Computed example of a mutant assay.
Amino acid sequence: MAQLERFAETRTPASRVDDVVARMRALGDDWPPRDGVAVFNRVYLSVTEEVARRIHLGAFPDAHAAITLDVRFAERYLRAVDAAADGHRPPACWRPLFQYRRHPGVRPLQFALAGINAHIGHDLALALVDSCRTLGCEPADLEDEFDRVGDVLVSLEERIREELMPGPDLLQIGDPLTHLAGAWSLERARDGAWASARTLWALRDLPGVAQEFGERLDGAVGLVGRILLTPLPD
C-alpha cells in the first residue's frame, strides 16, 4: 500500500488503476486459495478489472472521476490488508473476515459475501467522500460514477453466488448457507452506502459527529460480517 500511495500523485490516472490491479494480483499469489481473504480478493480483483475495462471502453462519461472513485475505494481494502499484515487492528467491518479467514467451518461463499459487505457497507461511503474532497465536488456530482460501479458489482453478484455455492443439493430453504446468502443483499448495501456518504458529507463541518457516525457505521457493518461468517456444519 505504501508503494501505491507513493506513486499516486505522479502517475497517470489509468496507471493508478493498474497499480491497484497489480497489488491485488500479488496478494492472490501470496495467499492459499482457500484463505478467506484470498477468496474475497479474487472476487474484488474481477470487479476491479471489469471496471477498468469499462473505463477504457468509455463506458464512464467522466473517466477521471470514475478512476478516482475506483482507486479511493480499493485503497480502503488495501489499508485493511496492510493493517492486518502489520499486526494492527483493521477497521471493525473487516475484522471478522481476517479473524475467520482460516476457519474450516466457513464456506467460500461466506468469505466472499463478508468481504463485499465490509467493502460496500462501509468503505464505499468513505471512498465517495474521499473522492469528493479530492475532486472538489459534491456527492451528487459523482452519482453516475457511483451507480455505474455499483452496476458492475450487482452484475457479478449472481455469478459469484453460482460459482461459490457448493451445489444444487444445498439450494433448499432450510439449508443454513442458503439462508445466510439470501439474507444479505448487495443492492440494499449499495443504497445504504449512498445514504451514508450523503450523511457524512452533510456532517463534514461537524467532525466530531461525523467521526461518531463513521465509527457506528463501521461497527454495524462488522456485526453483519460476523453473522455472515457463522461457521456451518458439513
Rank of each mutant, 00 (worst) to 15 (best):
D30L: 06
L228W: 09
A112R: 08
P90C: 05
E157R: 15
V71H: 04
A8H: 13
P90N: 01
A38H: 10
L128I: 09
V47T: 14
L126M: 10
P33W: 01
V20A: 02
R226C: 02
M24Q: 11
D35K: 08
E138C: 09
R148D: 07
M24H: 13
R216M: 02
D130L: 07
G219T: 00
L170D: 04
R72M: 12
P61M: 00
L142Y: 05
P168L: 03
G28M: 05
D147M: 06
V43P: 06
R107Y: 09
P108Y: 09
D169M: 10
D82F: 06
F213V: 10
D35Q: 01
V43Q: 13
V106Y: 06
P91A: 13
W184V: 15
V47P: 04
L164A: 13
R16C: 12
P33Y: 01
L180P: 10
V39D: 02
C137E: 00
S15Q: 12
V17G: 03
D86R: 15
L232I: 08
T10V: 12
F40L: 14
D151P: 08
L206Y: 01
L113C: 07
Y77L: 15
L206C: 09
D35C: 11
Y44L: 14
P91M: 01
I120H: 08
T230D: 02
R188L: 11
L223T: 15
T12A: 09
D147C: 07
H64R: 14
L78H: 15
P231D: 01
G182K: 08
A52K: 05
P104F: 00
R101F: 03
R133V: 02
E158S: 14
G150Q: 00
A63S: 14
L135C: 11
P233G: 06
A210H: 01
L229G: 13
C137S: 12
P108H: 10
G214N: 04
Q211V: 09
P168K: 07
A197Q: 03
N41Q: 13
W194Q: 04
W194M: 04
L232D: 05
D147E: 04
R159G: 15
V106R: 04
D191V: 06
V209D: 08
S15G: 02
